[in-house]
Computed example of a mutant assay.
Amino acid sequence: MEVITFPKDRVIASKWEKTVVLLQNRTLSKFVPDTEKLDYQTLQKMLKTHRMVYVKPTIGGGGVGVMKINKLSNKRYKLQNTTSVKRFKTFDGLYNSLLKKMKNKDYIIQKGISLLKYKNRLMDLRIMVQENLKNEWEVTGSAARIGSTKKIVTNVSSGGITVDFKKMLNHFYKDKTEQNQFLDLLHQLSLEVANQLYKYNPNLKEIGVDIGLDDQMHPWILEVNTKPDPRIFFRDKSTIEKVVRYGRAYGRKYDLTPKFEHEKKYANKLGKIKRSIHNFR
């Protein structure tokens, strides 16, 4: 197993390093998709095992640089990013095109998860975990992200929107007890992620866990962000206020300026949220 040493910083940038650390936890390893560093051999191997994979920049966020590869019949391949789709008759053709798009940056390959869809659009979750005022890990927010039509990512910066995840659960679980049990599972999973990363970086104060659900409602940890953006919770004033209160306690300052139309809409509904939080004690 690769040995990982994190810098003495609250931000852990490398997706690969975070994945390696999570895989060292037996409980969490069941929820982490098969992942490799991207090169010619590993891509070939992964496409033999999985008919769909995602490739992601090792460092970066917002869905930038993410691409999806499907292995089609007759040894053909389809490569899709946020703006285009290309098909290739050979693996070498696919790989050479990929190299050009990678621009000499390091990438990882991740087993593709057939995510649950809402109204034919991809859906995943963001769960926020923070160090609270008692210096304990606490889940402070959860939201569902709905991707734009035909997009391969759910990020708001790529046209996605956020919705109340508890309300979304009504579409998958009719029984309230089952809803609460499933939500508790996701929260416990996210807390375990925080605890595991904290073992390797005790300066960690907050994380945003991106979780995908497959058609069996099995949760998969798609990514962990150690500098999460709280604007995803604009729909819920109490959540935003708690996130900011905890963040201030450990010295984090958030840029809450709305960037996208749906954020501006909800910021206005919440009564000028920037001003209310500025005055919040």
Rank of each mutant, 00 (worst) to 15 (best):
L98I: 04
G141R: 13
I113H: 14
A143H: 02
E136C: 11
V156W: 12
S157T: 13
V153D: 03
K86S: 11
I109M: 03
E131D: 00
L98H: 02
V153Q: 07
V156K: 14
V129L: 08
S158G: 10
N155T: 01
N135I: 07
G159S: 11
I152G: 02
V156H: 07
S84F: 06
R87Y: 12
K101Q: 09
V156D: 02
R87G: 09
K89L: 11
G147W: 03
S97F: 03
L115D: 01
L125P: 02
D124Y: 08
N104V: 08
F91H: 01
L94R: 01
Y95N: 02
I113F: 11
D106F: 03
A144F: 09
S84G: 00
A144N: 10
S157G: 13
I161N: 13
S157F: 08
E138W: 05
D164P: 00
A143Y: 04
G112S: 09
E138K: 15
S142H: 13
Q130K: 11
I113C: 11
M128I: 08
V139H: 07
K119V: 07
N96F: 09
K86Q: 14
D124L: 06
T83P: 01
D106E: 14
G160Y: 04
E136D: 13
I127A: 08
I161P: 03
Y118H: 15
R121Y: 12
G141E: 05
N104Y: 13
K86D: 03
R121Q: 15
F88S: 02
T140D: 11
D106G: 03
E131W: 00
G160A: 05
R145S: 04
Y107K: 03
L125D: 03
T154A: 12
I146Y: 08
K101H: 04
N96Y: 10
L115P: 02
W137Y: 14
E136S: 14
A144Q: 11
G147M: 08
K150S: 14
N120C: 06
I109D: 01
K105Q: 15
L116H: 02
Y95V: 10
M102R: 13
F88M: 03
S158I: 00
L125I: 08
D106I: 08
N96P: 00
V85C: 11
L98Y: 01
Y95H: 02
Y118W: 15
K86T: 08
E138T: 07
Q130M: 08
G160L: 06
K134R: 14
T162M: 07
K86M: 11
I146M: 05
D124E: 04
V153I: 12
A143C: 15
V163Q: 09
W137E: 04
V153F: 04
K117Y: 00
I161L: 10
K151S: 13
S114Y: 07
V139D: 00
T83C: 05
L116Q: 08
L125S: 06
G159A: 13
L125E: 00
S114A: 07
S84W: 04
T90E: 00
N104K: 15
G159M: 14
S148V: 01
F91S: 02
L115I: 12
S148H: 13
F91C: 04
S148G: 07
L115G: 04
L116D: 01
S84C: 06
F88I: 02
N135K: 15
